[in-house]
C-alpha cells in the first residue's frame, strides 16, 4: 500500500495528520472520537540510533502530553529490514538505544496507553524487537513479512541443506519467515488478510483487545493454543513456579 493510502485506509481520509519523514513516521489521528498517536518506521528502514531516538522521543512526548489526562492509544507502524549494520552504530551502542526505546514503550504501557503494532511491509529481527514486538497486540497487514533471516542465509550459517529447511518449514513455524508463522506462535495477534475490510472498525476492535491484555504477556499461551509453540508456556511456568 502506498504512502498516502495506508493512513487513509486506517483512519479515513482527512482524519489523520501522519507525516512521513524519510524512514520515520508519526502524527496524530482519530478513530471515531478517540485520538490516537501514530509512531513508527517506514520504507523498510534500517533502524539506526537516530531513528531509534526519534521513536523513543515521540513516545515520551505522547506520555508527557497525556500525563494527568486520558492516555491515547499508540499505534506503532513497523516497516523495517532490521537494525542498521555499521561499526559506528555498534561503537555508540545501538543495542542501548534499542533498550531505551523498549523502556519508553514499557513506560507508555505502565502509564495506561494501549499499544498496538501494525506490521506494514517488513518486520525483521532487531528493528522489530525494539518497539514493534513490545506492544500489547500485533497486527500483520496484508503482504507483511516477518522474519529473522531468510532460509538461504540460514542454510549457509547452520550448514543445513536448503531443501531440507524448506521441507521442514512446511511442518514447523519456528524458523521460516512468514507472518502466519508468527501468528501460530502467538507473536502476531491477528492477520489482516485483505485490503477490503473496514479497517477503522477493525483497528478500534484491536485497540480494545489490546486494553484487555495490557500488562500481561499472553503470547506464549496463545502460541500454545494455536499449536505453534508447545514448550514456551509450560517451561516458563515451571521455572516461575506459578
Amino acid at each position: 500500500m502506498s504512502d498516502a493510502t495506508l493512513f487513509d485506509a486506517l483512519f479515513g481520509a482527512g482524519r489523520h495528520e501522519v507525516v512521513i519523514d524519510g524512514h520515520f513516521v508519526c502524527g496524530p489521528a482519530r478513530l471515531d472520537d478517540t485520538p490516537v498517536a501514530v509512531i513508527g518506521t517506514w520504507d523498510t528502514a534500517a533502524v539506526d540510533g537516530n531513528l531509534a531516538l526519534a521513536i523513543a522521543g515521540e513516545v515520551l512526548r505522547v506520555v508527557e502530553a497525556d500525563a494527568g489526562g486520558t492516555p491515547r492509544p499508540i499505534v506503532f507502524i513497523a516497516d523495517t529490514q532490521g537494525q542498521a549494520l555499521s561499526r559506528r552504530e555498534e561503537l555508540l551502542g545501538l543495542n542501548g538505544c534499542f533498550a531505551h526505546v523498549a523502556r519508553c514503550v514499557d513506560l507508555a504501557r505502565r502509564s495506561g496507553h494501549a499499544t498496538l503494532t501494525l506490521i506494514h511491509g517488513e518486520a525483521v529481527s532487531g528493528g522489530f524487537l525494539a518497539f514493534g514486538m513490545l506492544a500489547d497486540r500485533v497486527v500483520a497487514l496484508p503482504d507483511a513479512q516477518v522474519r529473522v533471516m531468510d532460509l538461504r542465509a540460514m542454510s549457509r550459517v547452520t550448514k543445513i541443506e536448503l531443501e531440507r529447511l524448506q521441507t521442514l518449514a512446511k511442518a514447523s513455524p519456528v524458523f521460516a519467515p512468514g507472518a502466519d508463522n508468527y501468528w501460530r506462535m502467538g507473536a502476531v495477534s491477528t492477520l489482516w488478510e485483505s485490503t477490503g475490510g473496514d479497517w477503522p472498525a477493525m483497528l478500534t476492535a484491536e485497540l480494545a483487545a489490546a486494553r484487555q491484555v495490557a500488562g500481561q504477556d499472553v503470547r506464549a499461551r496463545t502460541g500454545a493454543e494455536r499449536g505453534g509453540r508447545g514448550l514456551a508456556d509450560i517451561v516458563a511456568r515451571e521455572v516461575a513456579g506459578a
Partner: peptide, 13 residues
C-alpha cells in the same frame, strides 16, 4: 537460528 522465530519472540518476552 535453528528456531529463529521462537528465539526472537522469546527474547521479546
Amino acid at each position: 537460528l535453528h528456531e529463529a522465530n521462537a528465539g526472537l519472540i522469546a527474547i521479546s518476552e
